[in-house]
Simulated scan of single mutants.
Amino acid sequence: MSIFVDENTRVIVQGLTGGQGRFHGLRNRDYGTKVVGGVTPGKGGTDVDGIPVFDTVEEAVALTNANASFISVPPRFAGGAVLEAAKAGIALVVCITEFIPAKDEAFFYNVLVRDYPGTRLIGPNCPGIISPGKCNIGITSGSIALAGGPVGIVSRSGTLTYQAIHELSQQGIGQTTCVGIGGDPVPGTNFIDCLAAFEADPETKAVLMIGEIGGTEEEKAAAFIKEHFSKPVVAYIAGQTAPPGKKMGHAGAIISGSQGTAAAKMEALTAAGVVVAVNPTAAGEKMVEIVRAF
């Protein structure tokens, strides 16, 4: 099985006629994802390499039965695109757009929670989601992923998501689903959301979790794992040498006082029974050991 997406997911690309939307949308389609349409206001009736383009998400959903959207639009339009998809009844929205102001993210995230509880947002500022061999929405390279499980991956870092996938695939360890939740301060989907879904997925036997400095999401995940998660977890926390008060890469990766440090996160995860690795390669190696011992 997989979480959130599978071979039946029907995807529209908001921003398909733009450079990035076209590039990644066509790559997703060529991977085997059911990309059934695109949306660009004013360009309805055209197509991108055979994929029909619509003026609105509502029209696209009505004519294609899409249930997921891949948003690749500039920051100033991203919030409106997310809410348009939710209003049209899209169940899963993947937004890769970066540099969205935190206040805008907080606004559309809270509107989703209040008005559209049936819509799940992954991102923004994320690589997206891939269930190898079934569906790829976003910018992850399908060529590095290996279908069949039994490992689920959830990560705040896009680049480290790719490394985790590649490290496991090189060792013949497949993945059920890999979710890049993004590194911004207001993620639409968090660690606990993904862990709960992996716990319920019978084909996911273990989880590789990649966090980073800033915020308290990893500590919250540790508490959830301790009380509610029955499967082995390996974790790596990026930013272990980051100085306090300095943003490192992601907008959400900033230490404030004693909060959000790598040491605090690693301590909380270790106390919850998680195997905590000192670097990404070691995380992959520890996961390989766990899987081969099943």
Rank of each mutant, 00 (worst) to 15 (best):
A221G: 02
N110K: 04
F294A: 14
V278C: 11
P41G: 12
D201H: 05
K43H: 15
A147D: 10
A282I: 11
I213T: 09
N125W: 09
V111E: 15
M266P: 09
N279Q: 12
A164C: 11
R292V: 11
T204S: 14
C95K: 06
S143H: 14
G239D: 13
V288N: 07
P41Q: 10
G148P: 00
S2G: 12
V291P: 00
S155Q: 02
V274M: 08
T176V: 02
P280W: 13
Q259M: 13
G45E: 13
G180N: 05
G32M: 12
Q163C: 09
G257E: 02
K134Y: 13
R22E: 02
V35N: 07
A238M: 12
L83G: 07
L26E: 13
K220A: 15
A206S: 06
G158N: 05
H250C: 08
V53M: 04
A271C: 10
F70T: 00
L92G: 01
T119K: 00
L83I: 05
L208F: 02
V111M: 09
G214R: 05
I90C: 04
A223P: 11
A235K: 09
S169M: 14
G42E: 05
K205E: 15
K34R: 14
A242F: 10
E167G: 08
E167W: 09
V233H: 01
G149C: 11
H24M: 08
D30N: 13
G142C: 11
G152D: 14
F294N: 07
G45L: 11
G45R: 09
V233D: 08
V13L: 09
N190D: 09
I96K: 02
E203V: 11
Q175P: 10
V207Y: 06
V93E: 08
E199H: 06
G211P: 00
K205W: 10
V233Y: 05
F54I: 06
E267V: 15
T161D: 05
V275K: 08
M248S: 13
I237R: 15
L92E: 01
T270R: 07
I122L: 06
E7F: 08
V111Q: 11
F229M: 04
I139D: 00
K265Y: 05
P243Y: 02
T119I: 11
I139F: 06
C95A: 15
I165W: 02
G180H: 00
Y236G: 07
D201Q: 09
T33R: 06
G214W: 04
F70H: 03
G138K: 01
I225S: 00
V57H: 05
T177S: 10
F99Y: 14
I90K: 04
I100D: 05
E285P: 07
